[in-house]
Amino acid sequence: MENNQPINFKELWNKQVTPAPDQQDLFNKISKEQKSRLKKVIVMNVTMLFTATFIILIWIYFQPRFVTTKIGIFFILFAILMMILFTNKTVPLYKQLKPDESNAQYLEVFKRIKSREAFIQTTVLRLYFVILSVGLLLYMYEYASRMQLHWAVIYYVVFLAFVAFNWFYLRPKMIKKNTKKIDSIIEKITTIKEESI
């Protein structure tokens, strides 16, 4: 191409070889997606059902006499259910993201969702660990009170070490991992928006 001649971008653009449309592959992908969506709903419901059954069975089988045990069971159940519900709460959030909006609107909503998601993940994770630990502590009290003192002390030391590990190591690690990914996405969206002005 001569330097002083304008380049015909349209001609070059249209000369690009394109693969043949593959409708079979497309419909396979559509059915695969529908199946995976259904699978997610089933897994979530089965998990909730199992958790509830498990707690009810403990209640019936062990016949707890202390009120602390009962409250503990409620807390544990509540923490698990909250985690399941809130991690799935991000799904309705994505329903706000309409694929046929203009790019500017789409990016705006996308950014809002990501910020909300980061908030939910961090707050829910913090609450989950607190409620679960308190629940376990209360639940264990009845059984520990029937033990000999030295066994009860070991029991609680191990338990507190487990809680500390969760709180000081696992929780920050999980939060950091989640927010790092989301933050970089938010940052990228902001850059795209700024560049488009």
Binding site: P99, D100, E101, S102, N103, Y106, L107, I185, I189
Partner: peptide
């Protein structure tokens, strides 16, 4: 619009 938003979604 759908196609360009799908492209933008690649960020994630």
């Amino acid at each position: 619009r759908i196609a360009t938003n799908t492209c933008l979604r690649q960020i994630e």
